[in-house]
Simulated scan of single mutants.
Amino acid sequence: MKKYEAMIIFAPDTEEEKRNSIMERFKGIIEENGSVDSVDEWGSRKLAYEINDYKEGYYIVVNFEAGADSVNELDRIAKITDDVVRHMVVREEE
């Protein structure tokens, strides 16, 4: 397993309860074949450029260890989740 960092930007109008349930789903995907090291909520921040008429987003950074299958599934689910404005998963160097 390799170490990864995922940044997920939610729409600013997403309710906290819904955001937490989506994050629990993401954690569940990771924990099937890996482990979540940390979840860091940055909160609302201004976006560098407007995305889907949003000028702000709610940022969450997740550090985790997982296999490639878990990363692909996380990426797939993030793409089809309406409340996720942008996401990116990068592998950390060792």
Rank of each mutant, 00 (worst) to 15 (best):
K2S: 03
K2H: 06
K2D: 00
K2Y: 08
K3T: 05
K3G: 03
K3N: 13
K3W: 05
Y4V: 02
A6C: 11
A6H: 07
A6N: 05
M7S: 06
I8D: 03
I9G: 01
F10S: 03
A11V: 05
A11D: 06
T14N: 08
T14R: 09
E17K: 15
K18L: 10
N20C: 02
N20I: 05
S21W: 01
I22H: 03
I22Q: 03
I22V: 13
I22N: 04
I22D: 00
M23W: 08
E24D: 14
R25V: 02
R25L: 12
F26T: 00
F26S: 04
G28V: 00
I29K: 13
E31N: 14
E31V: 01
G34T: 10
S35T: 12
S35K: 15
D37P: 00
D37C: 00
D37K: 14
S38L: 07
S38Y: 08
D40K: 14
E41M: 10
W42P: 06
S44A: 02
S44Q: 05
K46V: 06
K46I: 03
K46W: 03
L47Y: 01
L47R: 04
Y49K: 03
I51T: 01
N52A: 14
N52P: 00
D53E: 12
D53Y: 05
K55E: 13
E56C: 02
G57N: 04
Y58T: 12
Y59I: 06
Y59W: 11
I60M: 07
N63I: 11
N63Q: 15
E65K: 15
G67T: 11
A68L: 09
A68M: 09
S70I: 00
S70Q: 04
V71N: 08
N72Y: 09
N72W: 05
